[in-house]
Amino acid sequence: MLTAAIVAILVTMILALIRAFLGPTEYDRMLAANSFGTKTVLLIALGGHALSWHSYLDVALLYAMVNFVGTIAVMRFFENREQDGTLETKKEA
């Protein structure tokens, strides 16, 4: 059953990649990348157990953290960007 779940995760990763390539806006691409990252965490956790790796869960935990921080960082960058491509610090009302 682990194998079936791993195949399902891989299929989802391919679907997310297609969205990342198609994705009309950069936000779509980032959404796909974030989703891909979560799938990677699951893949490491399940695959590591299936192949009996050592310390795979630490890798998965770390990957989850890097994925989160990466998404936030990229989105902080896009957040202050105006339509014409200039950067502007805009405060929330």
Binding site: M1, L2, A4, A5, V7, A8, I9, V11, T12, M13, I14, L15, A16, I18, R19, L22, L31, A32, S35, K39, L42
Partner: peptide
């Protein structure tokens, strides 16, 4: 595992 895998694919399909 099977339900999770199915939902995973569901999300991917939905994203497309």
């Amino acid at each position: 595992l099977l339900t999770g895998g199915f939902l995973c694919i569901t999300g991917g399909v939905g994203m497309l």
